[in-house]
């Protein structure tokens, strides 16, 4: 177990180094931050001065090296645009993204699993057919289109929900939350729904497919023969076995939620890290972009590791395999 974690930790470091390196390779194609920093009619001298101050003329590998060394000491540099430390900017934006992703993740599970079960148990029902069609729409429409449609219907036409922002927020230490106010909760509905829609439909379809498969299995037939009640069969025997692939997909998709939050945050002007990243791209704000990418890659590694650990808990067969494997490794 410990070996497994240490190995994962090393992998995480490698992933982050690689992501940062690729990021630095790409930043060159984003253009010149200097033009965004100086005024339009700045002289060549002033431009050179800024360039020198930000050390933009250094070779790529040197800029990368400096970033890695500073980042290892927890210093991600200063944003070109906001003149503030990047770590402070990210910390400030993290709660907004975290709350959004959390709600979206819960929604996708809380709605996706029951809907999947329902459509599996009543495959020919009108409602099931309707849900299946809707899920196709959900899985194929680009999220920003759904987002704008949601705004059009619920904000502009019906006037029920806000079209942007987080509503009223309450500070708890450095964290700021929208969970504790009515406007804050209302503001969460549309963005979290937009963000979870893809995951929701994916989970629903997955649960349905797995469930249908499991329901055909011999042990279910045997359970029926034993005269067990339908509810017991469906929820105790069938559902449990359905959930293993769901956990895998959900884990992988959790990273996707964080990544897709960029689009959701842009559409709904949600003041999270994704919005900060987009702004940084527009401004060629290299320190912010680099820090964000490294942080997201770290999150991905953490999520994947947790998923692997969860397997062990859910599926006893994997557990023995894993111990044997690590045992051999050690």
């Amino acid at each position: 177990m410990l070996v497994f974690l240490v190995r994962r930790l090393l992998q995480a470091v490698m992933v982050m180094l690689a992501v940062a390196f690729i990021a630095f390779l790409m930043f060159r194609y984003l253009g010149d931050p200097v033009n965004n920093i100086v005024s339009q009619d700045a002289t060549q001298e002033q431009r050179e001065e800024v360039r020198k101050r930000l050390r933009l003329d250094d070779p790529l590998i040197l800029q990368y090296g400096r970033f890695v060394v500073n980042a290892a000491q927890g210093d991600f540099g200063v944003s070109y645009r906001n003149s503030r430390p990047v770590s402070a900017l990210l910390a400030e934006r993290f709660p907004a993204t975290a709350e959004l992703v959390l709600v979206a993740a819960i929604l996708s599970l809380a709605l996706g699993i029951p809907l999947g079960i329902y459509t599996a148990l009543k495959p020919r029902g009108v409602l099931s057919q309707g849900l299946q069609i809707l899920s196709l729409v959900g899985i194929s429409l680009p999220t920003f289109v759904t987002g704008i449609l949601l705004i059009l219907v619920f904000s502009v036409w019906l006037g029920w929900l806000p079209s942007f922002g987080r509503g009223d927020v309450i500070d708890i230490g450095w964290w700021w939350t929208g969970f504790l106010t009515a406007t804050g909760l209302k503001a969460l509905i549309l963005p979290s729904f937009m963000l979870c829609l893809f995951q929701l439909t994916l989970i629903m379809r997955l649960v349905r497919a797995e469930m249908l498969e499991v329901l055909r299995a011999d042990y279910i037939k045997f359970a029926r023969a034993r005269g067990l009640r339908n509810r017991t069969i469906h929820f105790r025997h069938a559902l449990k076995n359905t959930l293993i692939p769901v956990v895998t997909i959900f884990g992988l998709q959790l990273g996707g939620l964080i990544a897709f939050a960029i689009i959701t945050e842009t559409v709904f002007q949600w003041p999270g890290m994704g919005a900060l990243f987009i702004q940084a791209v527009n401004f060629t704000d290299v320190p912010v972009m680099a820090a964000y990418l490294v942080m997201v890659s770290l999150l991905f590694v953490i999520i994947n590791t947790s998923v692997d650990l969860l397997y062990n808990v859910i599926d006893p067969r994997l557990r023995t395999d894993q111990t044997r494997a690590t045992g051999r490794g050690a």
Partner: peptide, 11 residues
């Protein structure tokens, strides 16, 4: 409030 998306700003 800054609203960067045109569609959202209009909405």
């Amino acid at each position: 409030t800054p609203i960067s998306s045109d569609a959202t700003r209009v909405a």
